[in-house]
Design a binder for these strands. Structure first.
Lengths: 133, 133
DNA sequence: CAGTATCCCAATGGATACTG
DNA sequence: CAGTATCCATTGGGATACTG
């Protein structure tokens, strides 16, 4: 109980908690990224090749497709498999971890879809109120 | 079955789906924002005043605290209540919708905490592999 | 096919100073 | 106390062109 007077910031620092290197944040960042969730959902249908993914996603550039896939691969959500054919062929698929992420992610997305009418109502009310000033 | 040949992009457009105005994305954006989740968790402890929130959060600026709270208020997650005292006093609290978001959000955060060791292992392996090239 | 390499712009968010 | 107002650095991400 020696930290009774510490602020939350100090507590966190004492625990080695660092916002800029927070594991939870690194996952939330995936969710916040523009294409990650779309790619994850697409990969749920099974392994997909690079260009197939690109075609399935609305308006994603090769640049962002590569980058997002690399980020997911680095964190162990996606597996990249190169086949030594020519022309080259590369397949992307969900790892077990990536697959297990889908459960909480679907929870969040489901909530978002369910609440969407309420959100839009709230937003409209807020904006109209703001416009009146 | 007339859309058998349509790409996913075309399907989505046909359904009026627009990435830049997608309700699901607008929720995911909250999750991806730097301070939202921290604020939401803090508000779970009950209503909090502006400066109290600021003190509870590690290194958030007034600017970002205001902005994040406004974003949440606009979407109906947070309620802002002004007391006409002087000096002025303002209390922020979770709405029912905001409270109901905590369930799927806790699911995601819990998953992130549980997977964090695996993520760090994957990341280290990936980085070492990359360094070897 | 499956990427890289560049360039560039818009948005995010931090620092600081000021206010009713 | 609870904010605004400004300015500025970093980042995210789109467009385009090129490559093994």
């Amino acid at each position: 109980m020696q930290d009774l007077k510490l602020s939350k910031r100090d507590e966190w620092e004492a625990m080695g908690f660092d916002l800029n290197n927070c594991p939870v944040r690194s996952v939330l960042d995936h969710v916040g990224a523009k294409w990650t969730v779309l790619i994850l959902f697409e990969l749920q249908n099974g392994a997909q090749r690079f260009n197939a993914l690109g075609r399935a996603l609305p308006d994603i550039s090769k640049r962002m497709l590569t980058q997002t896939l690399r980020d997911l691969e680095r964190d162990g959500m996606v597996k990249r498999q190169v086949f030594d054919t020519k022309p080259p062929s590369v397949a992307y698929s969900l790892t077990d971890m990536g697959q297990s992420l889908m459960t909480p992610l679907l929870g969040l997305v489901g909530w978002a879809e369910a609440q969407m009418p309420a959100v839009q109502t709230a937003r409209k009310a807020y904006d109209e109120q703001a416009a009146r000033l």
